[in-house]
Design a binder for these strands. Sequence first.
DNA 1: TTTTCTGCAAACCGTTTGCATTGAC
DNA 2: GTCAATGCAAACGGTTTGCAGAAAA
Lengths: 140, 140
Amino acid sequence: MSDLLERLRERGWRLTAQRRVVAEVLDGEHVHLTADEVHARAIERLPEISRATVYNTLGEMVGIGEVIEVATDGRAKRYDPNAHRPHQHLVCSRCGTIRDVHPHGDPLASLPAEERFGFAVADVEVTYRGLCPDCARAAA
Amino acid sequence: MSDLLERLRERGWRLTAQRRVVAEVLDGEHVHLTADEVHARAIERLPEISRATVYNTLGEMVGIGEVIEVATDGRAKRYDPNAHRPHQHLVCSRCGTIRDVHPHGDPLASLPAEERFGFAVADVEVTYRGLCPDCARAAA
DNA sequence: TTTTCTGCAAACCGTTTGCATTGAC
DNA sequence: GTCAATGCAAACGGTTTGCAGAAAA
């Protein structure tokens, strides 16, 4: 289960109680928490953990590529521990819920060479938007 | 040239000097300015225009669908007046430059039904990332 | 013992808002 | 004349930072 924690340990990270808790809280499938949500859950296990430490720790995890930062819109960034397997996001335009999805084909291939303008294209980020089942029901 | 302004007029917008200037500054191809950049350019033509008005005006244009909001990353949002023709963005991961691009095929089609989890998928947002020619040269 | 991480609080940036004034229609 | 748009400045949410103290290696 503690896959993320394991990966961090392997990198020779200094393991503190705070970092362990942040990694544990963030670990799992379809996890897309905001920094504040991470802080709230972390506090349940380690009451003295500060917001600053959560922010710093998340920033470091993103920096080394073990966590992905998802900037949904004008709202708070969300953090996705599923950094090892490429995937895209399906976001509800009403409630903001996020699901990981796996489209077929390589999204990078959809950009023809003549549309690359000399850029060395390295990555593509795809976000599908729509109403989730709950919100679609509520809107009807 | 003043395509955006024309569209706004047709919608029966109350036309003030400020709105006209914001629309003029924002109009064009491959334009992706931040609110502050819009304000800076607007001030050259209309010195008393306030930041608040620029923000409000941009927000309204986004609300009626005449301008697209592009949230590149953790930085300031950028505004794209090219709202009538569907396109994607190619962003330089180093300097942040944005180009409009037109991939082939419908990006929505790449998400199979069994990966939609009951969502009513309405839109897709695709962002290609890589080094622009200038930055690739500088990094080499 | 050394180096790094932590917590606090204050600063920061981009953005939004309340309210009195101004100006388009 | 009416009502909506403007400008100001203050508030706001999310995030970052400087620094002294605490704790891992």
